[in-house]
Design a protein around this nucleic acid. Structure first.
Lengths: 340, 340
DNA sequence: TCCGCAAGCCAAAGCCCTTTGAAAATTTGA
DNA sequence: TCAAATTTTCAAAGGGCTTTGGCTTGCGGA
């Protein structure tokens, strides 16, 4: 059943039927009711392809995911984000398109997306301190929003970020308050803006207390379990091992726990850990949380960012939206006063 | 630049230009060369929307992801799978569309996808022992392939599965050979076919050695870290605690390790663990693996399944493809002989 | 009674490609 | 050399929707 057939059945023109269905005002209310009823009865649904061709809109959004053998963008953090964004898209009838491309083909991919009008907008993941994608997308006139932000966040584009700096300052302070002085940072990859800011927060907390930053206690890597394990293992073998750790992800923190326990240390007693917690859905469970953490749901971020993007697509002239989310500090079992 | 403009520039008809570009034989070689050259020069690319409308093909594949508050399909296993499938799609110029929908709207979603011709095919995730989606998709005439299979795998559809039964039999046997007799199974959700088969394998191994299956040692849940932790914690408090465990995912196994260490037990000495390992990309690291495991890359499965689907789309008349992958047994540090 | 103005509806053009059926140009074969 | 076969090209008909511009109604005001 297509528009033509439906309008024949109704003895109306395609114009009127189309307008009735799409809520345009120039059609009488009884007519509209009749049309809607008929559409339901005959199970009419407009063809997406035709609609897109006619309107020059794709009703789709892309996530371009750079993939390299070294760094996998497709990780649990990403998938939770996608789950959130996906639910927004579903709600508004948008499609989500995930393009997995090699690092050096990203630009090509964006250009292609813009040119082909295959999508109405994109979400940019994991921005670097300075990120060429921002300028590229602006020049391509392709609506976009950024998960995170670049160093010069005053540039005019939409982003949503958690307050990484304050979160890590707070996390570090929490350990300092407990008496810890040698505190390690297991950061993400520091070329990325979020990790850079996290480090700043960590350093600020230390400096404020007059504790010198020890670069030997700062690590940077993909936020996975073995990373936490390996670093902790080697840290604990040092003479002057840290008594507190701040980590960038629960995954990493799990590695820390494994290493500590293997060394016979009790988490929360012999070693304290505060982690950033994205509230990954597959790690949630009821009860007192294992980890003391600063937390913010990455799934909610996905949901919200998608909303911002869709809004941006509908209203290209609205000013950019920039949201900075604060995190919650949740005290779990992984922290305790420094043992003397 | 659209087709019309390009053909005007060339003083050719749209027909000829279109055919030249799409490799049809009824166009002279010099003409074709001329057309291709011009297309490059003017940076002409056909419009996807128009192409789709004209051909009734979408060059896209959907993954319908049921989402509920209880079970999150979007987990690290899924995202690795997607990464694999995505790379295949990218290679062949297909789009990947992820539809996150509530459980009870799946059928509607599939019907909608089929009706609207928004995609040329779908990949079915996480089949149950009996799965209504199979019949639905067959009746909708929408090409599909299944990751895993249903109990009656002789039905005529394409699937790719790992040999869950033999893998778990093997894993269990490995523990039995080490002298373990009380072996727990931390399975996935047993309504799902893969978990059902895993249990069969586990039980078969025990029975073959004349060990009675103790249903008190069998657990079933989403394969996450806290699950492994909780179950292990409670198991170790029993009088007659198991000395060996078989788990369905490395995530769960990590929880097992955490619980065991917390109880002062050493993994590989006091407690042995064999896990199924999907080779999740974010958990890979060099060196002797922590876990003894039966393994098969879920990312490769995604890659291959996408290939099968695309092939199926191109050649609808080819018979279904059914692949059963065997797993590798890799010995790590998590297993050792039973202590007396 | 007639005009003007909304409100309601319509025909047709436009979006941009593929594909059919046929014509024109070229080559082949006797 | 000319008809037949083949190659090359084309005009036009889809595909299914939106949207422009214009054409009817029906009604209130003059």
């Amino acid at each position: 059943m297509n528009l033509k057939e439906l309008s024949n059945k109704l003895n109306l023109s395609q114009t009127t039927v189309s307008r009735a269905l799409n809520g345009y005002p120039e059609v009488g209310e009884k007519t509209r009711a009749r049309v809607i009823e008929a559409a339901r009865k005959y199970n009419y649904h407009p063809s997406y392809s035709a609609k897109r061709l006619a309107m020059g809109k794709s009703h789709a959004v892309a996530h371009v995911v750079p993939q390299s053998p070294q760094h996998s963008m497709i990780n649990p953090h990403f998938s939770d984000f996608i789950a959130g964004a996906g639910s927004t898209y579903a709600k508004f009838g948008f499609e989500m398109l995930i393009s997995v491309v090699p690092y050096d083909e990203q630009e090509k991919c964006y250009r292609e997306l813009a040119r082909s009008k295959r999508v109405d907008g994109v979400i940019v993941h994991g921005p670097y301190k300075e990120d060429p994608r921002i300028g590229l997308l602006q020049s391509l006139q392709l609506p976009f929003v950024v998960h995170g932000r670049t160093e010069e966040s005053n540039i005019d584009y939409s982003w949503l970020d958690v307050n990484n700096r304050s979160s890590f300052k707070r996390a570090t302070n929490f350990l300092l308050d407990l008496g810890h002085e040698r505190i390690a940072l297991l950061n993400g990859i520091e070329e990325m803006d979020f990790a850079y800011r996290r480090r700043l927060g960590y350093e600020a907390a230390l400096t404020q207390r007059g504790i010198e930053v020890d670069s030997g206690l700062i690590f940077s890597s993909d936020m996975i379990e073995p990373y936490g394990y390996d670093v902790t293992k080697s840290l604990l073998q040092r003479e002057n091992a840290p008594t507190g750790l701040v980590t960038s992800s629960v995954l990493t923190a799990l590695g820390v726990v494994r290493a500590a326990q293997e060394c016979g240390l009790q988490i929360g007693k012999d070693l304290s850990v505060v982690t950033f917690d994205d509230e990954l859905s597959f790690l949630q469970y009821p009860g007192v949380p294992l980890f003391t953490s600063v937390r913010s749901s990455i799934m909610n971020a996905g949901r919200r960012l998608a909303e911002i993007l869709l809004d941006q697509i509908d209203n290209p002239d609205k000013p950019p939206v920039q949201e900075l989310w604060e995190t919650d500090l949740v005290v779990g079992q992984s922290t305790g006063p420094r043992r003397v």
